[in-house]
Design a protein around this nucleic acid. Structure first.
Lengths: 213, 213
DNA sequence: TAGATTGTTAATCGATTAACAATC
DNA sequence: TAGATTGTTAATCGATTAACAATC
């Protein structure tokens, strides 16, 4: 069965939402409860979950603990991922210390840069390695995910190095479309600002233009 | 006429793509050229542009300069935006120096934090201000966009302060759904990692599960 | 003119939502 | 049992794509 990409994205949101319910000591939640917190429709929650199994009890809702476990299994929360950050600039440094990654299953185990000045320095407890040692380190440290946080001009070249090194996927913070044969997840920060700007300009007419525009 | 949200997102991509063509000295491009670089279909490029006008010449394609101008007008590239960053941690600091914003139309003019230790220090040439002065600074510096780069636990509270201050839109780096009545653009870094992880796990069967799963 | 490429329509594809029988 | 809520179907909505007449 084909799982819609938006469903996969929402699985992560469900997981976080349920974690909060657990913290709050809630044992059972309905699709309505989840939907309200996430600003979506209850039928969407039920449909998303139904791709993977029957996790709820009619009349009762979902056991927070059970559903957490099921989703954890689906999105592979139990697995640990070793991550390399390429680019020891401001963004790369911030990501190396990013609590959202640290407290989850993503362990930053290496930082690379091509600047000999930066090599050997420590960022968030990790020594910066020269990019020429990428492949070696990937094998040695069993790195599966690479983060591209280098300037636009270097991004494609770096991506090819990464692909060649045996890394399995890329989180790409550069604004270009990478041409590689491994999965890439784009985080386009500038584009988010531009989209917001457009939305603000359009005001209440967001995404609506008059015929004569 | 209603403009699909994905179309708005792509407008920013077209703009960048055309900027590169201009740098390369190219004067005319076809929808096919653009589509190839962006890994989308030519008919999508044409359809997206057709929401806003007839910018091309049949048989010839689009004038790079003219189309750049048209898109700049649509997405409001000519307007300058004053941006405040809330949260002077690693991520906030990185964003204050982020080249992708600096070289575009987004000027970071203020950084806020609630930590008295940080207030008064300089980040990327900007002095950190205490969050209690938010409203005052927003008026004074004409700030229209706020970036939320604070811990999850503070995000909703900060968002309400931001809304109250008169800011027009939020770029939200926290992992929660903000409940405010101004436009919000979410940048969910952790979710991008999770989605990538899922895609890697699924391998060639990405987003496909067998019936018996 | 002949070749190329647009702008636009109609068909297809994919995702969301409402509705409701099943059932706890 | 009566009330609540699931799981699933079918309807709707929205976005992408192919196809092609218009035309540079």
């Amino acid at each position: 069965m084909k799982i819609p990409k938006p469903t996969v994205k929402r699985l992560g949101l469900y997981y976080r939402c349920l974690s909060r319910y657990k913290e709050e000591g809630v044992n059972f939640v309905s699709s309505q409860d989840i939907a309200e917190r996430l600003n979506i429709k209850p039928s969407q929650v039920r449909k998303d979950l139904s791709y993977f199994g029957n996790f709820g009890k009619r009349g009762l809702g979902y056991s927070v603990n059970k559903l957490l476990g099921e989703i954890a299994f689906i999105i592979g929360v139990n697995k640990e991922w070793n991550v390399a950050i390429i680019g020891a600039g401001n963004l790369g440094s911030a990501l190396a210390n990013y609590p959202g990654l640290l407290k989850h299953k993503f362990n930053v185990v290496a930082i690379f840069d091509n600047d000999r000045e930066k090599v050997g320095k420590k960022i968030g407890g990790i020594t910066v390695t020269h990019i020429s040692d990428l492949k070696e380190m990937v094998q040695e440290k069993n790195i599966e995910i690479a983060v591209i946080a280098v300037p636009e001009s270097a991004a494609q070249y770096v991506a090819e190095q990464v692909e060649d090194s045996g890394v399995k996927g890329i989180v790409n913070f550069s604004p270009i479309k990478l041409r590689v044969n491994i999965p890439v997840e784009d985080v386009d920060i500038t584009l988010s600002f531009e989209t917001l700007a457009y939305t603000i300009i359009m005001g209440d007419n967001a995404f609506i233009l008059e015929d004569d525009e």
